[in-house]
């Protein structure tokens, strides 16, 4: 008897109604990051799959391939990903462009990682894009929604249909950190990892690599290397943020606090280690933890007038 009640409560929590615009905001955040990552790296992608085929070690979607593809095919995949990425971000023809973008991004980044190593910063990006691509994330803040309104359609309000994808995108983000925490706990150091010595030596090795291969190491590392207590603090802090992360999904306010802290952690990693977790450092990966529709529409008279203008398409700003 208890099980159905518990399951019902979990289901209604997971299917909490949320505004279409919030999900639309999460879609825009994901798409914007993907385009900002892909476009400036056009030449890098182009060169990468023209390097020695012996370096190809397939991961993800690339494991389904018979081997290295002709570079021209991958160039096409790259440009199709960019094109569908633009449609995805704008929320235009989402029923087709959304799933297609998720699939193409998965293919492209799998292939990219197959030439080097798994860049963990993009695991969440790919899964976010696939979830947002197949969900109704273009019902708000999109070209599709604007065209629908123009044809006389009523803008959708809050619904569980917009709630569960936001919850799931948040869960994807959270699980990555949780698994990362478990991996540290399961490594030979175990709980001692929190003492900071393992982290310190990891960062030191990384700093040497950057120094030798890029001619520069992280700005702060040279300064803090001698201060072991700082690494102890970083070790404890990392464990708390990674293993305590499930709480961020259970309580929305805790989720916001966690997102801000972990965003700061990634910038800290950059300053100390020089490692750029770009999706995380952009902050866009944490969009699902925030009430984006409220952030985008603060309650100022000008914002209210603009919102009215945007919704009605005819109201003037004269009253402002």
């Amino acid at each position: 008897m208890t099980s159905p009640i518990v399951f019902g409560r979990i289901a209604s929590w997971w299917l909490t109604p949320m505004p279409a615009t919030r999900l639309g905001g999460v879609r825009i955040a994901c798409g914007t990051y993907a385009l900002c990552y892909l476009l400036p790296r056009c030449n890098m992608f182009h060169e990468l799959w023209r390097t020695d085929a012996d370096l190809f070690d397939p991961v993800g979607m690339a494991r389904l391939l018979p081997g290295v593809l002709p570079p021209g095919i991958m160039d096409t995949v790259y440009w199709l990903t960019v094109l569908t990425g633009v449609f995805f971000t704008l929320g235009f023809k989402h029923r087709i462009a959304g799933p297609l973008f998720g699939l193409l991004l998965f293919t492209l980044l799998s292939y990219r990682n197959s030439w080097s190593m798994i860049l963990h910063m993009h695991n969440a990006l790919v899964i976010h894009a696939m979830i947002l691509g197949i969900s109704r994330s273009a019902d708000g803040w999109s070209v599709d929604a604007a065209l629908y309104r123009r044809r006389g359609g009523v803008p959708p309000g809050s619904s569980w249909r917009y709630g569960w994808p936001i919850m799931l995108v948040g869960a994807v983000t959270i699980i990555a950190y949780f698994l990362s925490g478990v991996a540290k706990l399961a490594c030979p150091e175990g709980l001692d990892w929190a003492a900071g010595e393992a982290l310190r030596s990891q960062i030191a090795v990384n700093a040497i690599r950057y120094d030798i291969l890029e001619g520069e190491s992280a700005p702060l590392f040279q300064t803090i290397y001698q201060h072991k207590a700082l690494f102890w603090g970083m070790g404890i802090g990392t464990f708390v943020l990674e293993l305590g992360v499930p709480l961020a999904l259970l309580n929305r306010r805790l989720g916001v606090i966690w997102a801000i802290m972990v965003f700061g952690m990634h910038w800290g990693i950059f300053f100390v280690m020089g490692i750029k977790f770009r999706y995380q450092m952009s902050g866009l990966t944490y969009a699902s933890f925030f009430d984006l529709e409220k952030m985008a529409c603060p309650k100022t008279p000008l914002a209210a007038a603009l919102r009215k203008f945007a919704l009605n398409g005819k109201a003037s700003l004269a009253n402002y």
Partner: peptide
């Protein structure tokens, strides 16, 4: 794996 990973970053002994 990618995108399903166990996130082993910073766990190998140096």
């Amino acid at each position: 794996g990618f995108p399903l990973s166990y996130y082993p970053m910073f766990t190998s002994t140096r």
